[in-house]
Design a protein around this nucleic acid. Structure first.
Lengths: 145, 145
DNA sequence: GCTCCCGTTGACGTGCACGTCAAGTTCTGA
DNA sequence: TCAGAACTTGACGTGCACGTCAACGGGAGC
């Protein structure tokens, strides 16, 4: 376990967000610090930072709102939690259920990424068509089409 | 020229937005109706609808805000306007300037699309890695990695 | 001409994702 | 030990992209 004991300011800076954002995410139960100092200051780990970067990724790249992101991370958290108690060998039918939920969300996400990629390719095609027309214009200025 | 004389309600429905959105875009000088009825009601063309769909594309797929979108469309508009007066053969050095601006914006946009694509591929790779681990879990439940 | 839906402007409201300020506490280097 | 930076909670403010309501005007079918 990477246990750097990072302070909120450092995490914020390294992720390119504000401290307010970190406190807001905690309020929304999206990202809680792994610990606290004696006086009550938040202490984050590298794993916490990675989770924050993951949130930003889902937000910026996929355009999800924080509620959707919470649902995604929540399913993964439940699965991770389950794996901890896996060794305890408790409730096998509930295990299937939680794994199935994670798989379902994963499938849906990959589908959404594929769709987004397709749309992105469309936009790219439009841009390249425009670029060709611009090159035409720059070349001969007398053939309007 | 496709000149369907569409009313605001039909344009909104076909684009999957509200009438309020159309009026808001007009307020922001993003999309003006091509004409009006005698009484002052907005009348759109198929080209206007296409522009609206383009705005939505840039918004949803690229995540641009309306100001950025305005800048992008603005440059293209200036170029289109220029092409109209091209035949008039006025101000050749200003022509180069405007074309250069459009090319520059086009280049930057394509670069942003490429970057977005790369990030999207990263997200996809993460999701596929998770999917593999899920399949492992579903297969043998005794080998924690 | 009457109806009724669709449209108009203007103004205020809303949800999200934070920003910002206040007043106090804690942590860290000299 | 003490200055000053960084942190805490709490509350209110903000910008964007619209939603919504009120009061009124236009226009297409009967």
């Amino acid at each position: 376990m990477t246990d750097g004991a990072l302070r909120i300011g450092e995490v914020a800076t390294r992720a390119g967000v504000s401290c307010r954002t970190l406190r807001y995410y905690e309020e929304l139960r999206l990202l809680a610090p792994s610990g606290h100092s004696a006086g009550g200051a938040r202490r984050y780990t590298e794993d916490d930072l990675a989770r924050l970067l993951r949130i930003k990724e889902l937000q910026d790249v996929m355009g999800f709102d924080l509620e959707e992101i919470g649902a995604i991370l929540g399913a993964e958290d439940r699965l991770a939690e389950l794996r901890t108690e896996w060794r305890g060998g408790a409730r096998p039918e509930r295990q299937d259920e939680i794994l199935a939920e994670a798989v379902k969300i994963n499938d849906r996400l990959r589908q959404q990424v594929r769709e987004k990629r397709a749309k992105l390719d469309e936009v790219m095609a439009e841009l390249e068509a425009k670029a060709r027309r611009y090159r035409e214009l720059a070349g001969g200025s007398s053939t309007p089409g």
